[in-house]
């Protein structure tokens, strides 16, 4: 009897309709990437590598090549050289430090292997570009500080702006405006 009443009063249909109406009026989950917003990853995120410097601005990398040994895809090339000018923390620095980003699978073994915490995975994840040059990250690029500082807390959606340049498309974040996604 109740089933019959339910049927003739369209109870189930009205339930469904009210649910979709609720969804229709609630906020959407979409992150408007890349035009207006961008996902800011957590600090544990494994993105583009970065080579750190110490407080005096000396390179922490001593070119021990442990990262290259630990790398499962053999994408890190390290060539050491001697240096007495105080560029690095020891008298041995990397002459060439190159990561083949196409081969890299961002497993993070290199940061585990590193004895001086020189190499760390950063939070840069827009690695696409128009030519294959950018597939190789050389020392200069790795040493340059990344756009999002390490100490900046992640897990937010931040305001961003799409930039088209000859080198590729970049989404520049605005770190002052962040919001929780959910």
């Amino acid at each position: 009897m109740t089933d019959f009443l339910k049927k003739i009063l369209f109870i189930d249909l009205i339930k469904g309709l009210s649910l979709t109406l609720k969804y229709n009026l609630s906020k959407s989950f979409t992150i408007r990437y890349p035009d207006e917003e961008k996902w800011l990853p957590y600090q544990r995120f494994r993105g583009l590598h970065t080579l750190n410097k110490d407080a005096q601005g000396r390179e922490l990398c001593v070119a021990c090549e442990l990262c290259a040994k630990a790398c499962p895809t053999k994408c890190i090339t390290v060539v050491p050289m001697e240096d007495n000018n105080g560029i690095g923390i020891a008298d041995r620095i990397a002459k060439i430090y190159e990561i083949n980003l196409v081969r890299c699978m961002f497993c993070g073994f290199c940061e585990d292997a590193c004895p001086t915490t020189a190499i760390r995975m950063g939070r840069e994840y827009e690695l696409a570009c128009f030519s294959l040059d950018c597939a190789k990250a050389d020392k200069q690029r790795l040493l340059a500080p990344q756009e999002i500082p390490v100490e900046f807390e992640g897990g937010y959606v931040i305001k961003a702006r799409l930039e088209r340049t000859k080198e590729g498309i970049r989404v520049r974040p605005d770190l002052t405006k962040k919001k929780r996604w959910w």
Partner: peptide
């Protein structure tokens, strides 16, 4: 309407 009912934005 389709987008917002499915918690998306639709064409934007």
């Amino acid at each position: 309407v389709a987008g917002h009912i499915q918690l998306r934005l639709g064409p934007f």
